[in-house]
Design a binder for these strands. Structure first.
Lengths: 230, 230
DNA sequence: CACTGATGATAGTAAAACTATCATAGATGA
DNA sequence: TCATCTATGATAGTTTTACTATCATCAGTG
């Protein structure tokens, strides 16, 4: 374990230990691994991404990187879990003393649909790049033949935790609504998918004049959720 | 081109020529390729699936299969396109002379959410297995670094066509609803995702006593859509 | 009966996804 | 301060994947 003079100012997120072999947040190499893997996956896509290429970029070796993660899939799960944990944190922070559950849900939707401006001071990870990865690659974390095992091992804890947190607010708004969990998971998935569609398959979305994509997605989801809850 | 005595009784679906090198529906080997690839992908998952394994199963060779599809990704796109085209067909068939658009939309939702009983007479493809593939693997058709190229080439035409068909009904029900395309693509994605979640990450869904998963997903989506449209 | 076109048989290649072994340098703890 | 531990690097090797290339053969077609 190295000591890093900046460690105290960094946002440290505790994730399930089974996600990694060695916590990348603990060491300099680990932090470079995280920061550069986000950039590299964003650039070339998860399928093209390899530990060998990453090692070249950070001037390390394949073998060294395999000491942090069993394989690149685990790294992906780690990165998206990190993102979900960070979203949870932001949601808690911003809804902290908002009494109205409807208002809290709106704030959560805002956070969910906004392409991320990282508070770059708090972490060396490129937030915008990580957000693009989440949009494009996050489903691949669980769309595998090992879902059940991975779920058993708790690898999707952060996502489920985030969903549960939002679902609680949904149920607070309308305790009789019968599908809070389905509504929330649909929301979480749709927020990402709609952004992806807007960028790549625009005929599957609607564009509103004078609105950004993010604003349109927000408006759509807000409309959808609150109509569902009344 | 071989002649097949059953060809006239088979459901032949015309797909974008760029999906394949040689149309698998034209030959005996091609049809075995399709039928067995569906079973094999269902069994071992798309990542583990290779042309080599498939060739062994149908007692052919890798080289022969590569004459039908450039690579396994194209085969996946072909299979899910085939499914979407088939759904479109079923929707047209079943809503044929239903005057009420709301009723038509309900029928479409039913078709969308029902795990498929193939009319096994019409095709040698295992409909239930294909449906499981669509649920688990369909997103991988477009979540690649080549989305834009592939879209340009028209590889996602069937999906977009299906979505457009449903969106037209949505707009017929409520012409002032501002997000028909977003609503429909959310619906199409949610129908699959919720089924997947119910099977693998159940805390993200709701279960209703005395209802099957499919019925619950239908009820959720129906509720969601019709509330959105009022 | 010559020809075409589909398939099979066989071989080969580059890259991906690891695993293993050993050396070394810097930090730690007794 | 010396022994040790740990992280990393250097290097090499393996198996599997995802193809590509070449040639033979066989069945149907004109």
């Amino acid at each position: 374990m190295e000591t890093n003079p900046f460690i105290s100012t960094q946002l440290r997120i505790e994730l399930n230990e089974r996600l990694y072999l060695r916590d990348p947040q603990d060491t300099d190499l680990g932090r470079r691994l995280m920061a550069e893997s986000v950039k590299l996956i964003d650039e070339i896509g998860f399928e093209q991404f390899t530990f060998k290429r990453l090692a070249q970029r950070i001037e390390s070796t394949e073998a060294s990187l395999y000491r942090y993660f069993e394989n690149k899939h685990r790294l992906l799960v780690y990165l998206v879990s990190w993102y979900w944990a960070w979203l949870s944190y932001q949601m808690r922070f911003h809804t902290h003393n908002v009494p109205s559950p409807a208002e809290r849900l709106r704030l959560m939707l805002r956070i969910l649909t906004r392409g991320h401006q990282t508070d770059a001071a708090a972490t060396q990870v490129d937030g915008a790049a990580l957000y693009r990865i989440v949009v494009k690659e996050a489903s691949k974390a669980y769309l595998t033949k090992d879902v059940d095992e991975d779920n058993q091992a708790g690898l999707f804890r952060e996502y489920k935790r985030l969903a549960a947190g939002i679902a609680a607010v949904v149920s607070e708004i309308n305790p009789t609504y019968p599908y809070p969990h389905m509504l929330v998971s649909t929301l979480l998935e749709a927020a990402r998918k709609q952004l992806f569609f807007a960028q790549h398959l625009p005929s599957l979305t609607n564009t509103a004049a004078q609105k950004t994509t993010e604003e349109t997605v927000y408006a759509f989801l807000e409309n959808l959720v609150f109509k569902a809850l009344t």
